[in-house]
Design a protein around this nucleic acid. Structure first.
Length: 552
RNA sequence: AGACCCAUGGUGUAAUUGGCAACACAACAGAUUUUGGUUCUGUCGUUCAAGGUUCGAGUCCUUGUGGGUCUACCA
């Protein structure tokens, strides 16, 4: 089998490694979230990169919870993360792994470092350590505890583990170089004391490794060949490699790529949390949120998200993806998969004056013009219908206008051609009813009328229509990059009209829809059944509108 | 300001590693269409700057400029 061709700079590294026979041609990646929050679109990118590379090069991909901070981590986040990844369409190698699985091994590695004289126990306070760090253009100063002997350090560290010291009283630090240009290498803290229960190890430990003494070591323990992370970890790589060298452990290779930013979506956990806590959104799974749970609830198909992440590429450049590309991916999938139904979002009554009262008939309509195998469905039709208010104009219009107006001919989808006569209105000039006549010989499928109607409109039979609660979601912010304003807070850009709840009229077959089903409401957009739907009340969320080339 | 990273159309990503700057999205125009959807066709427009190396530079070198990251007992 020949090596696949590289599609980006990370894959180029991998291809080179493969060609050189590194790690016997083994490729192993991992997705390492901290279980302290919900996954969002940025995580989706990292998931796609890691899993797709694993797949493409015949490798494996682990799921590892980076759970080294007991203060912030909870088990229910783990379950959530697992669900989101599976929903996105990926299955990891074996069991879910945890950095906390390795606390014992990590402790032994720390001892090894101490014995080699490369780590020391420091009694300095956090403030003192910060002061010792120096500055970007000023070298740091050595800790007064830096020269303790390995024996003394080992004793102290063992007693830290035994719980002899209170939180904050001591830390374990690597002994590197307090004048190093990379601040991370100025004797970084490796272990801290936290008398706190961990979501998995309980009270077994009172010392916990920091990221830099857990992540890379976990990579090594798992035999991860390529440890892919975002650009902000670039400076950590020097420490990552220093520790591999010092410890003599499996040399995983860290490669950094640029995070993906998407217009109108924020990925900052703190800010997402604020939106939830201040009631700006209904929860972490609100369809307006950039969380995977939110996008799922909004009706975005996982295939669309994967496609989006793939087509935005992998580079080291700061990037800002247009929201339109995300929606393009969503529409591309839904156009093929979503059945078409009719629903009238802003209904106004239309009466066919020459259609006999009390008469009705059953018409058939294709479910999906892109896919004949989706079959047809039946739609009731009678004298009184609901049509879209915005499809009617009170004054006669020119030929560039295809919809309803006095004296216009329009086609009702899957039904007849109508001749619009006029309307009735209330004292305020609001249209209360549209009157029309129909051409009995213009029925869809056997139209012998010879009449050409340019416009085809959606409609619902009034007698059999069901009410639908429709949640019309719009962008949460009025600015594509609400965080990028130095003089303003992102909260200043909250869109006050990001959700409008309306009652629409839908064709009766819609009553059978199940949570998560996504449809195209003909001419209006894609809509998905919300979990709030009940037997008595259907609830639909707007997934994404349709493109429109009409400038009306 | 020290160190590190980055710079190609409106957006994002390519360019056989020094050889005609391409693709997607967006926008615009037209054709098709029982969704003003889909599909099809066309148009639009780019190598941050200045030097240098070279027959030839988006690619290599130098110097600028612009943007990003780093000074948590978070990850």
């Amino acid at each position: 089998m020949s090596t696949p061709t590289a599609d980006n700079f990370i894959e180029e590294f991998i291809v080179t490694d493969l060609e050189n026979g590194k790690h016997d041609g083994r490729i192993h990646t991992r997705f390492p979230p901290e279980p302290n929050g919900y996954l969002h679109i940025g995580h989706a990118k990292a998931i796609v990169i890691n899993f797709e590379i694993g797949k493409k090069f015949g490798g494996k991909t682990n799921l590892r919870m980076d759970d080294t901070n007991p203060t912030t981590e909870e088990t229910h986040f783990v379950t959530n993360i697992e669900n989101d990844i599976r929903w996105l369409g990926y299955e990891w190698e074996g069991e879910t792994l945890y950095a906390s699985n390795y606390f014992g091994e990590l402790y032994q590695l720390a001892l090894r470092l101490i014995d080699k004289g490369l780590a020391f126990v420091d009694d300095s306070t956090a403030e003192e350590i910060a002061a010792q760090k120096g500055d970007i253009d000023e070298p740091g100063t050595n800790s007064p505890f830096r020269d303790r002997t390995p024996a003394e350090n080992r004793d102290l560290f063992e007693r830290m583990k035994a719980g002899e010291f209170p939180d904050g009283s001591k830390v374990l630090r690597a002994k590197i170089d307090m004048a190093h240009p990379n601040l991370l290498l100025r004797d970084p803290v490796l272990y801290r004391i936290k008398h706190e229960a961990h979501h998995r190890t309980g009270d077994e430990w009172c010392i916990y490794p920091l990221y830099d003494f857990a992540h890379g070591q976990s990579d090594s323990i798992e035999g991860i060949t390529h440890s892919l992370c975002s650009l902000e970890f670039r400076h950590h790589r020097d420490l990552y490699n220093w520790l591999i060298e010092a410890l003599g452990i499996f040399p995983s290779r860290q490669i950094e790529f640029a995070r993906m930013n998407v217009d109108y979506l924020i990925t900052s956990k703190r800010r997402l949390k604020k939106l939830v806590e201040e009631g700006i959104v209904a929860g972490w799974d609100d369809p307006r949120m950039g969380t995977l749970a939110g996008m799922r609830r909004k009706g975005y198909p996982p295939a669309a998200l994967r496609d989006f992440c793939l087509r935005t590429g992998v580079t080291k450049r700061d990037n800002q993806q247009e929201f339109g590309l995300l929606e393009h991916s969503v529409r591309e999938v839904l156009n093929e998969t979503a059945d078409r139904y009719m629903a009238v979002l802003d209904p106004v009554k239309l009466v066919i004056t020459n259609y006999p009262a009390g008469q009705s008939e059953i018409l058939t309509a294709e479910n999906n013009p892109q896919d004949e195998s989706r079959g047809e469905r039946e739609i009731p039709f009678s004298r009184e219908l609901w049509v879209e208010r915005s499809d009617y104009r009170k004054e006669p219009q020119n030929r560039k206008y295809f919809r309803m107006a006095p004296d216009k001919d329009v086609r009702l989808k899957a039904a007849y051609i109508l001749h619009i006569e006029g309307h009735e209105e209330d004292a305020d000039g609001n249209v209360t009813q549209i009157n029309a006549t129909y051409y009995p010989d213009s029925r869809s499928g056997n139209d012998t009328s010879g009449i050409k109607a340019k416009g085809t409109l959606h409609w619902v039979d009034a007698a059999t229509a069901i009410d639908l609660e429709v949640r019309q979601y719009d962008k949460l912010f009025t600015d594509p990059t609400p965080m990028d304003h130095e003089d303003k807070d992102f909260m200043d850009f909250i869109n006050p009209d990001s959700l409008k709840i309306i009652t629409a009229k839908g064709e009766p077959a819609l009553a059978q829809a199940k949570v998560g089903d996504t449809f195209q409401f003909l001419r209006m957009g894609y809509y998905t059944v919300d979990p709030d739907a009940t037997e008595d009340k259907m609830v639909f969320n707007l997934t994404c509108g349709l493109k429109s080339s009409w400038k009306g």
